[in-house]
Design a protein around this nucleic acid. Structure first.
Lengths: 185, 185
DNA sequence: CACCGACGTTCGTCAAGCCGAACGTCCCGA
DNA sequence: TCGGGACGTTCGGCTTGACGAACGTCGGTG
């Protein structure tokens, strides 16, 4: 089987990391998870390809969500000043979306700062299946949501909807600003 | 092994669901994932306990993140009007954080709308390990970040930092509003 | 200094995942 | 009506994950 993108070594690292964060010995963790310590030893050394149940049991015993074991780690402090972000200009002139926090390798969300100076609106084609969009309006009024049931929003309002269907974003005032979280699941 | 909380049936259901969402036949999906269709057949029928590699390959072939296969489903459209959220009042009077999008059962982020009318600031104890906080300031100036290296922010500015260390949030102007995404992994 | 317990690793056995091949079913076109 | 193709399921085999037992190492103790 192709192991190029396989998370086996990531799992190995995560197991070690989480285990000594919790402060458990290998033997102790194995006992709590109900698996043989030989098995755990091999997994932590990078050998082997655990079954879902085995990994699940380890996640439970460690008190961490399953996903924590299959993709990695830790972020630094990061600041993006207003106007600094790498802006994605649309061919529709007035729309600008700044990607202020891109999805790290296997994370699950992007954060955009969307500015729009009123327009006939922006229609978006569906994104990846499972995507969810979250909007929080900062300034101005906005019409957004699934193409067949858009919602009008004002400052401070929040809206979420599936991103894997056609949807739209339309400024109703000049100079609107919205925070958008695109959640990839 | 204890199968009470094991996600095997969830996986089976997810595989079927995702497969016919994508519109692939069992044979076709097996081919693309590089696994035997007999294997896939058993998995979809709920039998068996796939290895991580097998499940990973299926996730890649389906174009869905790994986690999508071990925990379920889909969100509706949801709106929270400004001021409607369930506010978490702090003992420090001027701080209000509205949880506008709570973390679904096994998701990975909460979204808050934080309003603060200037104060001597709010110090927060560390959250769960692995937590990351993201801030986008809507109005006013804010001093926020890890307790040992806070950053001053203005409207539109973005900041992220580990949430599992002591950190602070302090309004520098009256009536500040910030969108905060608390990411649990 | 020898003993004992806890640690993590290694080894042989058994069970189970994964595989390819063969099978039964359905549908469409000759 | 028959044949071909795609579908999903079932059946031996080979491979490999998971197990318990035994092992070498380290620290603390009588």
């Amino acid at each position: 089987m192709d192991r190029s993108s396989a998370p086996l070594d990531v799992i190995a690292a995560a197991l070690r990391r989480e285990r000594d964060r919790v402060g458990l010995s290998l033997s102790e963790l194995a006992k709590r998870a109900g698996i043989a310590k030989s098995t755990l030893s091999q997994l932590e050394s990078g050998a082997g390809n655990p079954s879902v149940e085995t990994l699940w049991a380890l996640g439970v015993a460690l008190g961490v969500p399953f996903s924590r074991l299959v993709d990695p780690p830790r972020p630094p402090v990061r600041v993006v000043r207003f106007g600094e972000g790498p802006y994605l200009h649309s061919e529709q002139s007035s729309y600008r979306a700044a990607l202020i926090s891109a999805c790290p390798p296997s994370a699950r969300r992007d954060i955009y700062l969307v500015t729009m100076s009123s327009d006939n609106g922006r229609h978006s084609v569906p994104h990846m299946p499972g995507t969810v969009e979250h909007l929080v309006v900062s300034t101005g009024r906005v019409l957004a949501g699934p193409a067949d049931e858009p919602v009008e929003l004002g400052p401070g309002d929040y809206l979420s909807y599936p991103g894997d269907v056609p949807h739209l974003y339309q400024a109703l005032d000049p100079d609107t600003v919205t925070v958008m979280v695109m959640e990839h699941v």
